[in-house]
């Protein structure tokens, strides 16, 4: 009886120990793999085609993988904007896409088409603002976005035409390909100058950005 107890308890201890050692090893190997990607390919964090917010010459680049239909992205967005304002001129935001929801592709096509009318950032804020309505889980109404966008002065007729552009499909496909390469499995996912965050959370993003600011602007 006592022996059996010892066997079970020691097995549990060994297994739990292995689990934690394994997760530590996995995390560190992932980190060095991503750092490897940064050094041989900066395009992955800053492709030519991606929308960029902020000073083009800023030395600190936040790459955000976002999904217009994702609720966490909606919650993070104003805080990311605040962060950009705080370090205005020194930080820029590069938006890349993840299509993790049912209507993500539709929403991304809409957003990309608004770029042709120079209304991208207004439209992104607007889509996030009205997200609970058009991206409602029980009754998603992706076509509703067309009724909101005139609020920021988007020409809907033109938008619908621009959405057909096959270039947009290529952008989405490339973003999804890079997302897999970076092992991004949730949104929003941030990389600051190509480095993944220590952990998920706004605090970690602030920390990473201020570290890079200190490094590049003394």
């Amino acid at each position: 009886m006592k022996n059996k107890l010892i066997v079970i308890i020691s097995s549990i201890v060994v297994l739990v120990g292995l689990f934690f050692i394994g997760s530590k090893l996995y995390k560190s190997s992932e980190k060095s793999r991503i750092i490897g990607l940064t050094s041989d390919n900066s395009k992955i964090f800053y492709p030519d085609y991606s929308p960029v917010y902020g000073n083009k010459d800023a030395k600190v680049i936040i790459t955000e993988f976002l999904d217009p239909e994702c609720e966490s992205c909606r919650m993070f967005y104003p805080k990311v904007k605040e962060l950009l304002k705080m370090y205005a001129g020194k930080v820029k935001l590069v938006v890349r896409y993840a299509t993790f929801h049912q209507n993500s592709v539709h929403a991304i096509k809409v957003l990309e088409a608004t770029r042709k009318q120079n209304k991208y950032w207004e439209s992104l804020s607007l889509l996030f603002q009205y997200q609970p309505a058009w991206a409602n889980h029980h009754n998603p109404q992706p076509l509703l976005v067309f009724s909101y966008l005139p609020e920021v002065g988007v020409d809907i007729e033109r938008l619908k035409r621009d959405m057909q552009d096959p270039e947009i499909d290529k952008i989405i496909a490339q973003d999804m390909k890079d997302l897999k390469k970076l092992n991004v499995r949730g949104t929003p996912s941030f990389f600051v100058n190509g480095l993944p965050l220590e952990n998920f959370g706004m605090g970690y993003l602030y920390e990473a950005v201020s570290k890079e600011i200190k490094k590049h602007y003394k």
Binding site: S11, L15, V16, L18, F19, K27, R185, G186
Partner: peptide, 28 residues
């Protein structure tokens, strides 16, 4: 005893493995 302990080990390793995939490697 050996058989039941064997079964227990398989279940425990499978559980740990599945948690590793979902919680550490973030496979949904």
């Amino acid at each position: 005893n050996v058989t039941i302990f064997f079964c227990w080990s398989v279940a425990a390793i499978a559980t740990m493995g599945s948690l590793f995939f979902s919680e550490v490697m973030k496979f949904q």
